[in-house]
């Protein structure tokens, strides 16, 4: 394996959790709900999936538990922001604080436990192809899952009736409600999906990325996922690109350090953030201003009668 291939593989690993979490958040935001609880849901996903995987000695059960944990947190969030029409920003932050705390309690007995690596795909012949073999045919299932998910979300939003309903609710919930569309139900499901994705991303962190659990291991990735949705202007294809741009910048700055350019490491560490701002700036210059923000984003829905 050449260095180039190896770097590409690392970039894929670094980008996948961001991509998964961002896709979930994207669906929630397209339905008009700003969910700032991603970080907390991700932390819960990481803790619960690891705890379940160790207890039952099964990665599959672990992943299921992570997804479920994210969804349960999302249901709590939905109860407050949909059921009571509470402020979304405040509630999302509260869910993050709650999730970080609760994940610490759940994970505490599992500090020091470890899991074996999740076996990557191996297709005889294809995986052994030079250069592209490992990259395209030798990843773990999460990576393929995240790409399928991207496609599915894109098709759902743009090609299905349900997707159209979700988008119109996100654009203007009052008129959608007037048309008889189920605003709260659609949003509830969208929030659940977002939570499940955040949980899955968390599971990826503790089961694949590091294969152990430690408190606060999400280390702000939930916030990056949120930012990437904005970066993508709420379009799935651009979430994919954004996640990989950010992942690549994260990994490449470490390589730049190892290659000894003599630039301050803090400057290199700032590269992913600078690159994202710059990329968004360039995109905005090309596509004009104010793209794609769902009209009702962050506004609580209370039907007027």
């Amino acid at each position: 394996m050449t260095t180039f291939e190896a770097i590409l593989l690392t970039i894929v690993t670094a980008s996948t959790p961001l991509l998964i979490a961002s896709l979930g958040e994207l669906v929630a935001e397209r339905s008009g709900v700003l969910n700032l609880g991603v970080e907390g849901m991700m932390a819960m996903g990481a803790a619960c999936s690891f705890a379940a995987a160790v207890t039952f000695n099964s990665t599959a059960i672990g992943v299921g538990a992570g997804v479920l944990a994210g969804a349960v947190m999302a249901a709590l969030f939905a109860l407050v922001v949909l059921g009571f029409a509470a402020n979304q920003v405040g509630s999302g932050l509260a869910v993050t604080i709650f999730g970080l705390g609760l994940s610490g309690l759940i994970g505490a007995p599992f500090v020091g436990a470890r899991r074996d690596p999740v076996a990557p795909l191996h297709l005889p012949g294809l995986t052994d192809l030079p250069v592209i073999g490992r990259l395209f045919f030798g990843q773990d299932l999460f990576v393929y899952g995240s790409l399928v998910l991207t496609l599915a979300v894109a098709l759902y939003l743009n090609r299905t009736r349900a997707g159209l309903i979700l988008r119109s609710i996100g654009e203007n919930h009052a008129s959608a409600h007037g048309l008889g569309l189920p605003v709260l139900k659609t949003r509830f499901l969208a929030i659940l999906f977002g939570g499940a994705c955040a949980g899955l991303a968390g599971a990826y962190l503790s089961l694949v990325y590091t294969r152990f659990w430690s408190p606060g291991m999400t280390a702000g990735r939930g916030w990056i996922a949120l930012a990437l949705v904005v970066f993508a202007a709420w379009r799935p294809k651009w979430v994919l690109i954004g996640a990989y741009v950010f992942g690549a910048a994260t990994v490449l700055q470490l390589h730049a350090q190892a290659a000894q350019f003599g630039v301050p490491s803090q400057l290199l560490s700032a590269v992913p953030y600078l690159a994202t701002i710059l990329a968004l700036l360039l995109l905005s210059l090309r596509h004009g201003r104010a793209i794609g923000t769902p009209g009702s984003l962050g506004v609580p829905f209370v039907p007027d009668r």
């Binding site: 402020n87 604080i97 709650f98 970080l100």
Partner: peptide
């Protein structure tokens, strides 16, 4: 009591206040 417990409580408290406010 572990820090995580008090943090989880902080989250619950905030959620309750925001929900009550909306109610």
């Amino acid at each position: 009591l572990p820090l995580d417990l008090t943090q989880a409580f902080q989250g619950i408290l905030l959620l309750c206040v925001l929900a009550a406010d909306a109610l």
